[in-house]
Nucleic acid binder design. Sequence first.
DNA 1: CCCACAACTTGCGTGTCACGCACACAATGC
DNA 2: GCATTGTGTGCGTGACACGCAAGTTGTGGG
Lengths: 204, 204
Amino acid sequence: MNDDAMGLRARNKQATREAIGNAALRLAIDQGPHGLALVRVHDIATAAGVSPRTYNNYFSSREEAICAFQADQSKRVGQALRSRPADEPLDEAVIAAVIELYTDPEPDKAGLRMIMSTPELEGEALKAFTMAEGPLAEAIAARTGTESGRDLFPTVMAAAVAGAIRVAGRHWLEPGNTGSFAPILRHALSCVVPAAPPADPQGQ
Amino acid sequence: MNDDAMGLRARNKQATREAIGNAALRLAIDQGPHGLALVRVHDIATAAGVSPRTYNNYFSSREEAICAFQADQSKRVGQALRSRPADEPLDEAVIAAVIELYTDPEPDKAGLRMIMSTPELEGEALKAFTMAEGPLAEAIAARTGTESGRDLFPTVMAAAVAGAIRVAGRHWLEPGNTGSFAPILRHALSCVVPAAPPADPQGQ
DNA sequence: CCCACAACTTGCGTGTCACGCACACAATGC
DNA sequence: GCATTGTGTGCGTGACACGCAAGTTGTGGG
């Protein structure tokens, strides 16, 4: 998938980035949402097998490193929509793409809970989710034909979809939601995607 | 409006908070989006007439101080919706409330541009806009009757509206948009608010 | 196969910052 | 008036982001 057409350099770079991100997230989860200040840069770097100086060649703050996995996930939403069949209606395509992306591997609940219920991470978490908007808006515009008159539509819809994903995630984390992520996601998306017939109106 | 029923303490506190926020924003605008690192805490505190230590009794980062005005504005969205007549349909009420809030005093374009086009401020800016979601969701739920089955609807719609406001702001700042904020805002909101008949489908 | 070039990692030094702590002072309630 | 509580301020500390200048490891041409 990404082994070819990528030199050794690029692969190593990707690997270290993921190593640092995973180390940061793991350490943060270990300390819990109330002990984030105890996660030192030195510990993250050591756990990832790099020097502290290298760590901040990749990330300029602990928060950014911890939320990196969500940021990378968000970047894939546009691609996911583009890989849907071209004749599929926009609403169905968006819902299918998002659900597919977020259920192939179901998100790590501990990680999601960490970044969504830690006040110090709120800004970076929002940045991470918002990263879906740009590519997603372009993918939507590509489908609708980039109607210049309704220029705002793709961008606004992308923002709405990103927001729905975020809200669905928060809802999924609430105690008592032990089921899978898919139905919650579908329900949330059906609130903002135009003319989307919810297959399960009862949702939660 | 807030002079009565608020002790001397609370009023002073509010005043210093605004003083620090305004000073931070003004200094940031002076340096421009590329010189944010040159805005020192000491300068903000001095400009606001307080000590640096007091500054960070109110804000724990320069970014937070700079974006404070937008955060305070966002907190008023819920209130704005609640003050709409109860018999008004939800879609019209939301659009009217938001437009009213964002055009009574039209937003300061320099300030908006500062917080929306400075990468280092992205996280805090998103936090500021997102602060509208909680109160707004409650206000929406109060109108729809807090249907427990479609529990997600108010939250998702609030997120969509907040996103639309943010996108509209970004669009308004683009060079060439010299008109007022209202029509752009209306156009953006009509993309996410259900069954909203756009009075001007051509928008931009 | 070897070599020059570019990219990446690392250690060090520096300026800035957030925050705990202790104290002075103003506002509040009885 | 007086005790209490909340707020402003100075100082000290620990951590961090980042520029700089090596050393080290991939990359591509001859």
